[in-house]
């Protein structure tokens, strides 16, 4: 064996040993240590910030959006609607995804037109008043939030479907508007699941 190839063989031996140690430390000890600390100091968050109903059953996570539609995907008028979703059949937590349709894609243009028409009919508003988030699919397909504009736009219809005053529903929506962190690290939002849970409380 030449000196050079002996050197190379030795390098590989060192590389293998270091890699195995790194795998134990960085691949096993590190994530389990983080898990231990996270479960100690922030267990609810580390477990998905899950929400439970009065019986203690998990009803969802405010971080993961849900569909409020019937089996055919039609909007249930008594619930605030989430954004369109490209995750599986919609809000599939096992298959996060955006649509990845480009800005000139004819399928996207067609979808947006159809969604605008559907919302205009459901909520009795003009297409010009529908905000962009209402007619576009999010990046994750699990977006738990909508814009305050889209939430307020739905208040009338939700109130009518539930037979409660519009003012009550609007007040509820306004109480659920969250500014971005520190007021500017992100856009103002309304969490749809939290809003609908609060809505269920008042009937």
């Amino acid at each position: 064996m030449s000196i050079a190839s002996r050197g190379t063989a030795r390098q590989h031996l060192v590389a293998v040993r270091l890699l195995l140690i790194a795998t134990v430390v960085l691949g096993i000890a590190y994530p389990f240590t983080v898990t231990g600390i996270a479960q100690l100091v922030a267990a609810p968050q580390a477990n998905g910030s899950l929400l439970r109903d009065a019986e203690g059953e998990v009803v969802g996570s405010p971080l993961i959006g849900q569909s409020f539609t019937d089996a055919d995907g039609g909007a249930l008028p008594e619930w605030f609607q989430s954004r369109p979703s490209a995750a599986g059949d919609g809000y599939d937590g096992g298959a996060s995804s955006g649509s990845n349709l480009g800005p000139e894609n004819p399928d996207l243009v067609e979808s947006i037109t159809a969604r605008q028409a559907a919302i205009a009919e459901l909520d009795g508003v003009s297409v010009a008043d529908i905000p962009a988030d209402a007619v576009t699919a999010s990046a994750s397909g699990l977006d738990p939030q909508i814009s305050p504009e889209y939430a307020l736009l739905q208040a009338d219809r939700v109130a009518a479907a539930r037979g409660i005053p519009t003012a009550t529903v609007e007040a509820l929506v306004r109480s659920k508007i969250a500014a971005g962190d520190l007021g500017y690290l992100g856009a103002p939002t309304v969490n749809v699941l939290e809003l609908n849970l609060a809505l269920a409380q008042i009937g």
Binding site: N105, T136, A139, G186
Partner: peptide, 16 residues
């Protein structure tokens, strides 16, 4: 075309 129609470049973006 699509962003103009929707009224904003929100396709593939999260509300937050």
């Amino acid at each position: 075309t699509a962003p103009q129609l929707a009224g904003g470049a929100m396709e593939g973006k999260e509300t937050r």
